[in-house]
Design a protein around this nucleic acid. Sequence first.
DNA 1: GTGAAAGCGCTAACAT
DNA 2: ATGTTAGCGCTTTCAC
Lengths: 337, 337
Amino acid sequence: MVNLNEVARRAGVSVSSVSRVLRDDPSARIGVETRSRILSAAHELGYQPNHSARALRLARTSTIALVLPDLTNVLFTDLLRGVEEAAHARDFTVVLGHAEGMQPGGALISRMIERSRVDGVLVHPGDVVDAAGLCSLIASGVPAVLIHAEYGDAISSAIVDDTAAGEVAAQHLIELGHRRIAVIAGAPGSETSERRVAGVERALARTGLILDPALVAMVGYTPDDGRRGIRELLAQPVPPTAIVVANLNAGLGALQEAVGRGVRVPDDLSLVAIHDAWIAEITAPQLTTVALPLLKLGAVAFEALHALITTGQSAQTVVSEPAPRVMVRGSTGPTRA
Amino acid sequence: MVNLNEVARRAGVSVSSVSRVLRDDPSARIGVETRSRILSAAHELGYQPNHSARALRLARTSTIALVLPDLTNVLFTDLLRGVEEAAHARDFTVVLGHAEGMQPGGALISRMIERSRVDGVLVHPGDVVDAAGLCSLIASGVPAVLIHAEYGDAISSAIVDDTAAGEVAAQHLIELGHRRIAVIAGAPGSETSERRVAGVERALARTGLILDPALVAMVGYTPDDGRRGIRELLAQPVPPTAIVVANLNAGLGALQEAVGRGVRVPDDLSLVAIHDAWIAEITAPQLTTVALPLLKLGAVAFEALHALITTGQSAQTVVSEPAPRVMVRGSTGPTRA
DNA sequence: GTGAAAGCGCTAACAT
DNA sequence: ATGTTAGCGCTTTCAC
């Protein structure tokens, strides 16, 4: 492993000059000729800075952890990419942690942080936020940014415009002629779900409609929750002709259950889910969804964390651009005449 | 950040003693009373070793990279978990890299390694192995283990028993009475696919059948490849009554295309795909699959890498236990009488 | 059985 | 404009 010393010897200068040049320290005045000698020596030797040494010296690792409720979830592809791109641009590495039922204050995070492996952490707490876990995370003093969740204004967070997402989903159904519109929502207490439902209400209100409380199934965000939601709603005296599902995974379950029960989608029932992913294209019919700006959310969340780490400034951000967009596929159609 | 020094002061001993006790160095003779003083001091102070300092000193990071062709792919859930559990047991951290079309010798890996951030790398090169990329990876001298791929016996690798997987899939169809069995295989050159097809042939052979070459669609591992495969096979003069799809994602596409074309699954056509994941349960009908021992594969791959790092020994492993198992769901059924 | 001290590779005062 | 040097926190050899 070639180090600063070897480069310095090769260039016939001191290590400090090499260090200054290689990091292009602005406060350093280095002779043009010296600089080029150093640069070429480093290049010829294939010098790569030693991360551990730098981290030890600077007391920061340029590494952050991204904690997701479930790592291999298609819903997180874009979010992850957004975080990584932003991190890369600032020369940060992202290490992934899966929570998998773990509370956000739990073992993984503290292991990472307290051993000073990461400078901060991006936490997606999952559907329903565990307040105790969050508190312990905050209390630990680790720079942290919440994703898809808010927790007062002392702690940084980044969320998308869930209300707008619910709104465009409902708007799409209204434009197709639907009037009896239901919602398969998240579990009681899910903030994202509450905002999405509020968006649906807003769209309905604009058309002079109100959301029938009997048509809101507060189930959850898993395929199985979606199945339950469908059963619940179809059991209504006057079933809906269209449903907004607050989450893609639940939407997939809902679609499956409906199709499995012989309901013709979209002829008898239209379904639109919030969150888009390739998986929405492998069902029959394909599922209409609302795409959220998750790439942007990831980038914004990283920048918030970076700001928190470097300046100590916290901030709550709502990513509203690009705006939620309906991806029209086969599961939504006009009401029967 | 509390360090060895503070613990030493608190316990009234030297840092070296603290270090020895805290790592329970077997070659150290420490007084019982001293040891307990140190332990409690460390505990009271909440001492956590500084990873960077240790890494610098030991010239190893206890971190490995796991490079996958596509991070948020449901197919990798178990593999990832297997790797992480094994790594955790040896106090290693896993950082994830996505290749996303990147060649295995590419930018990410070299960045990680050459900056001595990781001690080695686990590479899943994806469907079709890029020989040039692999060569450059090997040439770089980085300890590496291939997952789901082999590359001569100089380089470590861990694969599952793909042949057995193809075999049990075909066996399942044969037992249901099918005789005209087709395969939607991976792209030409895909090793995993070749082995899986060979397994199908073996099962057929045992029943005195041979695999009709016209019934092997060499398409690929994406949903779209699966759709193409179905179109190709259904266009045959005598279409198959059952199909083994070499990959779950392709299987999802195949199922969708079949259902979308009005083919009744499983009455007109049975489908079984290799690889299992929750996603197979959200289609209508649910997809019958073959579960592979991916958890074990992950653990074995990590152990191979760990051996490579610590002893320099390379090895090629085939994980054949637990054996591939058919998860019977709705997409397979008896032949029509 | 325990301590002192060197040094891993790097950065940043502080010299010159 | 460039060099010298003191550590960052840890492990480990060597000394007692």
